[in-house]
Design a protein around this nucleic acid. Structure first.
Lengths: 237, 237
DNA sequence: GCGCGCCAACTTCCATGCAAGATGACATGC
DNA sequence: GCATGTCATCTTGCATGGAAGTTGGCGCGC
């Protein structure tokens, strides 16, 4: 019997192959790093990770190469894999990249055709409403997810695969910091208001306003976050 | 005798290990792709490349993983390595990333301290002068190199490693297109004038002007380039 | 001529072996 | 105590082989 190869028309543009062991190792390690099960600064041998994942060294080694390209680990020749930590300096860098990319993305979305703009704005507003609902319910993790979904949607509607990849990599790097600071943040209302402003500018097709609003939103977020990290004395996270 | 480990204080922040076979394979393949010795669309087996480079399949395979992360090739499972081609759509994406990143970089450089700004502006002006000299001499390749050096310096002075990496990857992807269109371009003078405007804004510490000038420079370049490609019917390069 | 299945050739995926680099403990000389 | 040389151990870099997936050609039935 011929194998039924289901070529699902994946919306996001998924890879069409089923996962190899390398993919498994990559996903497992990436996830473990994001959730800090492999804590920053930890240095593991490939052999050890291979044993833990039930495979040989080869796929772990190849996954480590990909993770190094993503900026999540450093492969030290003949000494193992080190999980990279984030310094405040890194957060400054990361925010500057986000400020640049997300600003341009907002501008691009605001110059889409009328119907596309409306759909994008509706989508963004839905995420903002989810944030506000989570805030009202005191559900901080849900708030964080909705916030992340808003920003992912903003980038997604710009229809630029390279921007999406860049933001994805940057988000992976800063995921731990975001989870940490979620509990410390003030001014959740301000975020919601910013989001509505961005969406409104997009809906109106005012690209310059959208760019400025997205920029300012991230500039403010950074100026709140960096002192927060400094106060806690978090220099490596 | 103890081995003299010369830890050269590399300015750019080089890796501190001497090149492995994987590094050799990566550099050789990247270079071959940039110079189109491995033409876009070409599909090679890892075995074939390994033979050509005089090594076994393993380092070639690992280099291919890195090149895939850089967006230069696609590794097709059990079918080989395909050199990716660039469509006009890709150039649009690439320019939007550059517009975003380089604009922010110019803004950041313009907010450096006085002496640092002056040094950066002097550096940029030197590259612009080199461009104009090359133009006067009719040396188009030299003009292209000086232009690239200007933009690399602009990013470099922003002191953001992540921005540098992003721009580096994007430049690798678009190098072939740039070489092709170098011969077709008009308005070389306009580029020089743009560059001087960017440097002047940085020198004066006018960050908003610097941002706008860098943006407009790239926006104009794109609006000149895309029709050029369309006229030549270059849909995959 | 045309569609279909089968098969040989080709290719990577992954495990494993060997050699060599890196490290830390320990003995040695001062 | 301190610096240094030596060595056992741990670790990866790279080569290679077996297994399995992919492809294109060829013959067969119609």
């Amino acid at each position: 019997m011929a194998k039924a190869r289901v070529e699902a028309g994946t919306i996001g543009g998924n890879r069409d192959r089923r996962p190899s062991l390398v993919d498994d190792a990559y996903a497992a390690m990436r996830d473990a790093i994001r959730e800090a099960r492999l804590p920053p600064g930890y240095q593991a041998s490939e052999q050890e990770i291979a044993l833990r994942l039930g495979m040989s060294r080869t796929p772990v080694h190849e996954a480590a190469i990909r993770l190094q390209e993503d900026g999540l680990v450093r492969v030290l020749p003949r000494r193992g894999i080190r999980i990279l930590a984030l310094a405040p300096e890194d957060m400054r860098e990361i925010y500057d990249v986000i400020i640049a990319i997300e600003g341009r993305a907002a501008e691009l979305v605001a110059t889409l055709s009328g119907p596309e703009r409306l759909r994008a704005a509706d989508d963004l507003d839905a995420h903002t409403r989810a944030m506000e609902a989570a805030q009202a319910a005191g559900d901080l993790p849900a708030w964080g997810r909705a916030d992340a979904a808003f920003h992912a949607a903003l980038i997604g509607h710009a229809r630029n695969g390279r921007m999406s990849r860049i933001v994805q990599a940057i988000n992976d790097q800063s995921h731990r910091a975001r989870m940490l600071t979620l509990n410390l943040r003030r001014g959740l209302e301000a975020s919601g208001a910013d989001h509505r402003q961005i969406a409104a500018a997009i809906r109106a097709g005012e690209s310059e306003v959208a760019l400025a609003a997205a920029r300012d939103h991230r500039l403010r977020a950074r100026s709140e976050l960096l002192p927060l990290l400094a106060d806690c004395g978090l220099t490596h996270l």
